[in-house]
Amino acid sequence: MSQISKGRTPVRIPAEVANIVGTSAAILAVVATGSAIVAAVPDPGALAFAVYWWIAQKL
Rank of each mutant, 00 (worst) to 15 (best):
S2L: 15
F49M: 11
V31L: 09
A36F: 13
A26N: 09
I13S: 03
I20E: 04
L59R: 14
I55A: 11
S24H: 06
S24C: 10
V21E: 10
A48V: 02
I4K: 06
I20G: 00
A40E: 01
S24K: 10
A46D: 07
V30R: 08
A36D: 03
L59M: 13
I20S: 07
P14C: 01
A15V: 08
A29Q: 08
G22I: 00
L28N: 07
V51E: 07
F49D: 14
A50P: 00
A26Y: 07
G7P: 01
S35V: 04
T23C: 01
M1I: 05
G34M: 10
I55R: 15
K58W: 14
T23M: 15
A46M: 03
D43S: 06
P14M: 04
A15H: 03
A36I: 10
W54I: 00
I4T: 13
A40T: 15
S24I: 03
G22N: 12
N19T: 14
V38T: 13
V30W: 05
A39P: 01
A48H: 02
R12N: 07
V51P: 04
W54A: 15
L28I: 13
T33V: 05
M1C: 11
L28W: 08
I55V: 15
E16W: 08
I37S: 01
V17Q: 04
A50Q: 12
I13Y: 00
A25D: 00
T9D: 11
S2F: 02
I4R: 06
S2V: 15
M1V: 06
K6S: 08
V17P: 05
W53R: 15
Q3G: 11
E16Q: 06
I27Y: 03
V21I: 15
N19M: 11
G22W: 00
G34R: 13
L47P: 00
A48D: 03
L47A: 12
S35C: 09
K58T: 12
G7N: 06
V11A: 08
R12Q: 08
D43R: 02
E16L: 06
W54G: 15
I37E: 01
P44W: 02
Q57E: 15
R8W: 09
P14H: 03
Q3C: 05
S24W: 09
S35D: 08
A25W: 02
A56N: 09
I13V: 13
V38F: 04
I27T: 08
P14Y: 00
A15D: 12
M1L: 07
F49K: 15
V51T: 12
M1R: 13
A15C: 06
Q3V: 13
P10H: 10
I37A: 01
A48F: 03
I55F: 12
A40W: 12
A36M: 05
Y52E: 09
D43V: 00
S24Q: 07
S2C: 11
Q57M: 13
V31T: 06
A50K: 02
V17I: 10
A15N: 08
W54Y: 12
Y52H: 05
S5D: 12
S2W: 03
I4Q: 10
W53P: 02
